[in-house]
Amino acid sequence: MNPVTTLSLGRIGVGVAALVRPDVVSSTMGSAAAPTSRPLLAQWFGTREIALGTATLLASGSARRTLVLIGMAVDASDAATAHAAVGEEEVPPNVGLGLVGVAGVAVLSGLLGLRVRTRTAVEAV
């Protein structure tokens, strides 16, 4: 399966989990927010993931490439934010570094998906 498709389906899955069980997702993410606002933040995150994953799955051509790049930027920002949260002692290192790892893998999946797409387009010419 194409890495972009896999990543998009993963985004949708995580997004649905965040909407259905925001308490579990927010506790897993180690949110430093007040306990009462954690479910809300997890649901916002979930909605973003579902929207980005679905839009990427439905797009084609240059629009899909653009959405992959946007997703990579979002994931890189997530990684940087999680790293900063560890430095500020807002989340435990094991949680924060796990989040950095997940976001980093998402960035790499996007890169791989773009590479696969570019190589396939070149081979078709």
Rank of each mutant, 00 (worst) to 15 (best):
L57Y: 03
A59M: 06
G61R: 05
S62A: 15
S62K: 13
R65L: 01
T66G: 12
T66V: 09
T66C: 02
L67N: 10
V68E: 07
V68N: 07
L69E: 13
I70E: 01
G71V: 03
G71Y: 01
M72H: 05
A73Y: 06
V74H: 07
A76F: 13
A76K: 08
D78H: 13
A79D: 06
A80H: 04
T81R: 10
H83F: 15
H83N: 11
A84Q: 15
A85E: 13
V86W: 02
V86L: 05
E88G: 10
E88C: 00
E90N: 13
P92Y: 05
P92V: 14
P93S: 13
P93H: 04
N94Q: 11
V95W: 03
V95P: 07
G96Q: 10
L97I: 07
G98D: 05
L99D: 01
L99K: 06
V100Y: 00
G101R: 07
V102M: 13
V102W: 07
V102P: 00
A103H: 05
G104R: 00
A106V: 02
V107F: 02
L108P: 04
S109A: 15
G110E: 12
G110W: 06
G110H: 10
G113K: 09
G113T: 12
L114R: 06
L114F: 05
L114S: 09
